[in-house]
């Protein structure tokens, strides 16, 4: 019997007031798979990710994590979120806490871990990603790239089943982007199931197993990076990729 997919989305609809942003998304992500989400601004990438961990309520459709339906009634939302790690574009870290405390807050308060255990895990993760010397600093002392790396570590400390990354390098200075991408690369190499919304096409082509092109609320096209980037089938995909090339991002 095939194991349940790490993440399955069935006919997801999401509207904000009268505007329907997601118009029927179907997506399946296997364990250890890395899916790249590309698309223009406003296509619904962020909304989709936020729906997966229920930061946005869903209007219609279903979402399953490791086979458990999280859109069912009576589901413990907090538990779900503990299983799904998400990192945003900005305003991630808690500025009034040290880096260490940022990372241990979730494990201690949401997972009930002891302080000692949480700090041990946090220190270990921070070391692994080259942030050990920042442990006791406050976020204002960190560069943007360092902050995002800490944000990723913070999400990892919860030992999630799935990691969602929402354009995590879009607000960074170019020279800081690389360090964050390297972290993500390492995660992928380690087998983390991830859905990554990104503008970094080169990066997406490198590490994603599958690319989904999101356009006007639906997944217009999906396939391997080679398929999507070299031989897109849809005209709109083509046009999108051309605009990206023109902007020099690929």
């Amino acid at each position: 019997m095939a194991p349940a997919a790490a993440l399955r989305i069935e006919d997801l609809h999401k509207s904000f007031d009268q505007l329907e942003v997601l118009r029927g998304i179907d997506l399946e992500v296997d364990e250890h798979e890395v899916v790249g989400l590309i698309g223009a601004s406003g296509s619904g990438k962020s909304t989709l990710l936020r729906c997966i961990n229920l930061l946005e309520p869903v209007n219609a459709g279903r979402v399953f994590i490791e086979g458990d339906e999280i859109t069912a009634r009576g589901v413990d939302v907090n538990r779900i979120r503990q299983r799904v790690g998400i990192v945003f574009q900005a305003f991630n870290l808690f500025p009034h806490m040290s880096v260490l405390r940022n990372v241990t807050l979730g494990p201690i308060e949401a997972l009930g871990a002891s302080k000692a255990d949480a700090e041990a895990l946090a220190t270990d993760l921070l070391e692994r990603f080259g942030l050990a010397d920042k442990r006791d600093d406050y976020p204002d002392r960190l560069s943007g790239g360092q902050q995002q790396r800490v944000a990723i570590v913070r999400a990892l400390a919860m030992k999630p089943d799935v990691m969602l990354l929402d354009e995590v390098t879009s607000a960074l200075d170019p020279e800081l982007v690389a360090e964050v991408l390297n972290v993500i690369r390492e995660l992928a190499a380690g087998g983390m199931t991830m859905v990554i919304a990104t503008h970094e096409m080169g990066f997406a082509r490198d590490i994603a197993h599958r690319i989904c092109f999101l356009d006007e609320g639906v997944i217009l096209e999906e396939g391997t990076p080679e398929q999507i980037f070299s031989q897109p089938r849809q005209e709109r995909t083509q046009r999108f990729l051309e605009s990206i090339i023109e902007a020099g991002r690929m």
Partner: peptide
């Protein structure tokens, strides 16, 4: 900030 905290499962 709230979203980040809720996303951690708090």
């Amino acid at each position: 900030q709230v979203a980040s905290a809720r996303a951690l499962g708090l």
